[in-house]
Amino acid sequence: MFSQGKYGRGVASIRLVGVSKHFGDVKAVDNVSLDIADREFMILLGPSGCGKSTLLRTIAGLEDPTAGEVFIGDRMVNDVLPKDRDVAMVFQSYALYPHKSVRANIEFPLKVRGIDKTERAEAANQAAEVLGLTPYLDRKPGALSGGQRQRVALARAIVRRPAVFCMDEPLSNLDAKLRAETRAEIVALHHRLEATFVYVTHDQVEAMTMGTRIAVMRDGIIEQVGSPQEVYDRPASVFVAQFIGTPPMNIFPAGALEPGAHLVGGRPEDTTITRDEGVVATVVLVEHLGHEAQVVCAIDDRARAIVRMNPSDDLPRNGDTVRLSVAVEARHRFDSSSGARID
């Protein structure tokens, strides 16, 4: 039912060419180029302050880029108002109108566009149906739970069938259980709507489970773009390697595991405690998680490494001196000064 863009122009790709956004001296987004394909679920991932929200707002038209060009479809939209870009935006704070009923909230984008009353009601009913909001249509947002409010925000976004959905950390205000449920719902929504999704998050679990591709951002630039598996298997830098995956990848100092001036990384599941070869380290903490145990080791004053072990194994104790190694085929190598991957 939502396959055709009835009010908008249908599906669309997004292309960013050398986009920068500066606030005074702060370069929030610095010369970013990115292609987002039609119907893609693109995640902008990074720590707070990395520029991911600013980049999303630039796509939606809430920020004017300082430099560069934004294309939606074939159209350069730098000077196009948000309402004419065929985008919908979902905010972390839901941004519902507290004085309007759920129905009036969902109908608002259509009302603004001058859609007549019966058509509006029908579209709102459909959107509410999709998100399970039918029983709450006459309530005010204040009478809803956080999860329900987020669904109203989603319903308000889907009701006018835009080509692009911009979502700014939509799940961050929900508790862990609800977040997992809503995650799955948004993915289902993406399949159903056949629209392009751009989704900002700092949560790597959301990024891994929801996105078709992930753009990892840091300090206003994109460090790596790729499918979740690619980003996990072949991180482009030490930053990406440690940002994606829990616990983060272990980084061994240059020369510790193998000769050379480069850093060596190994995922905790690829790192093993060995008898007589590898890096000498001291066990500082053993954490039991039930299905596994995580052994935290100090290699020297700065570097730490975590080893995932089977709880039934013979676990070391705090203060033990151990040797750590990573199988050669599971090693990641990074330049010691730039942090970039070496292959």
Partner: peptide, 13 residues
């Protein structure tokens, strides 16, 4: 909240 204005702005108000 600024987001309320922004949301209405994106929605075409």
């Amino acid at each position: 909240p600024r987001e309320l204005q922004e949301s209405a702005f994106v929605d075409g108000a």
